[in-house]
Design a protein around this nucleic acid. Structure first.
Lengths: 277, 277
DNA sequence: CGAAAGGTTGAAGTGAGTCAATCGTCGTGG
DNA sequence: CCACGACGATTGACTCACTTCAACCTTTCG
């Protein structure tokens, strides 16, 4: 249903994803990988010899497709992907937006096939981590075993947080949390990025958050109305990061209603939303 | 505190069994573990010597508490747990009901602390899998590395399915899917169990499904009204497994509305909701 | 016994979805 | 060139699925 159709047109649409073409020769060393997954401890010197191939994806190009046999995982170097889980009935949902520092493709390690589409939303580059190679490395170097565990642990934590978000939070809080997390992940060195362009469409956000496009649009408008953020198309500027977090925490404790005090400030917010130059 | 009464009296050879109070002596061998996670390939004979301690929990007893330092994972031998994820604000949600065949506690391997409560809902028994020991085993026996990966992969798949469920399905479909999956997991040898007692309260189901207790109760009543299931307190009997799956698939394609055909096949539906005129 | 907890049911309110119209930006082709 | 459609996004009006509030029943247990 979602046809990416980037500015490149429908030109590049090779389905087979041929082996040789896009996998460049080794240029990622193990220490790079360690950094990608944010492991502080330095890798053993010998590991510098372990190299991983990289692969580039253009916007809209799939990295893995639902049903593909599982062979390797991928460490994102830069760019953003969307991970779309599917069910037999054909219903699909965006379950993650992997980006730099994330490792993807761990799903399907059990079943042997991926059960998700992973598609680049922008120009992107990943390091290919063949499972066999990872296992060999893990066997030879004790520290690497933990590394692999952490990769999984991180994926798992993210998925659980996603469940929590979908199960507990209101639409407003979901969008606020989404922006907050995106801001944190796009930043570097622990500092969040307060101004950025959304790499994904409203529809993709809506799918990820379990909402409708209209609701996402309205909530963004409402948040902009309170002055917490600025929205212009895909451009987001976070003006009040604390306020953004407060929106999330508010609905944490009261799912929808139960007001202890009149609290008039929320609903009747000034419809002053038109910075639209 | 509870008499372990292990079938085999032999003590652990390599006892990292920890603070002996709750950890009984080894009675789980590696082949057992392999079976637990449903790996078909037989383990190398030497691995039969690797033993894991077991731990019992009474109903209501916590296995892991939020904030506990991460030391090991647990393979459930029998019994059912609930895994409750929490957030800083104190909001909590049931994110899983681990039971026999599941491995839990992989969350927090990244952060080093568990960020969930895991509590027994019934008399339960787990095998303790200390990470250090697993890594050692994995290093010595090539096959075991994959095993660990699969454990994680399975956990991950389950979490992603949870997200999908919460993001896409209607209340009715969630309950139906929940029963369907529970039925499948409680069964043995691939055959679902069609009659069982729910190990958890309505409130726990509601939290897991992102619904209110009242809605869960009403949906169960409605499903019973159609004859698909029978409900008596915690007793569930699935009378029409195919019909149960159909309920899920119906809402997969039409989230709420958009029916392509007049929907003649729904059996003698109870007046749960009036069909749109 | 009486309180507490789990569960069911009814009535009323609302948050978010659906439906639908409009606008802006592309990319394509007459 | 601009019309044309396709897509993304916004906004309004209406609707409904689910929540909330509330009463009540049952079982359990101190």
């Amino acid at each position: 249903m979602i046809d990416p159709s980037p500015r490149t047109g429908r030109a590049a649409r090779d389905s087979t994803t041929g082996p040789g073409s896009r996998s460049a020769a080794a240029s990622i060393t193990f220490p790079d990988l360690a950094q990608l997954v944010r492991i502080a401890q330095p890798a053993p010197p010998d590991l510098a010899d372990v190299r991983f191939a990289v692969r580039r994806c253009r916007a809209g190009q799939p990295l893995v497709r639902n049903g593909d046999p599982f062979r390797s995982m991928y460490a994102v170097r830069h760019g953003v992907f969307k991970q779309v889980a599917m069910n037999a009935g054909g219903a699909e949902q965006v379950v993650a937006f992997p980006m730099a520092g994330d490792v993807i493709g761990a799903d399907g390690i059990d079943a042997g096939v991926h059960h998700a589409d992973i598609t680049a939303l922008s120009e992107a580059e990943v390091a290919i981590l063949p499972l066999a190679q990872l296992n060999r490395v893990g066997r030879e170097f004790p520290g690497a075993g933990l590394l692999l565990s952490r990769i999984f642990g991180k994926e798992l934590s993210r998925a659980l947080e996603g469940m929590w978000m979908l199960g507990i939070l209101s639409a407003t809080a979901r969008v606020a949390l989404f922006l907050d997390r995106l801001s944190a992940r796009l930043g570097s060195g622990g500092a969040p990025r307060l101004a950025f362009d959304l790499p994904m469409t409203r529809a993709e956000i809506a799918s990820f958050l379990g909402l409708s496009v209209e609701t996402v649009s309205r909530v963004l408008g409402a948040l902009a109305g309170t002055g917490i953020i600025e929205v212009d198309h895909r451009r987001i500027v976070i003006r009040d990061a604390a306020g953004l977090k407060a929106v999330v925490e508010r609905s944490e404790t009261d799912p929808p209603s139960r007001r202890t005090e009149p609290e008039a400030q929320s609903r009747r917010a000034a419809p002053v939303r038109k910075p639209r130059a």
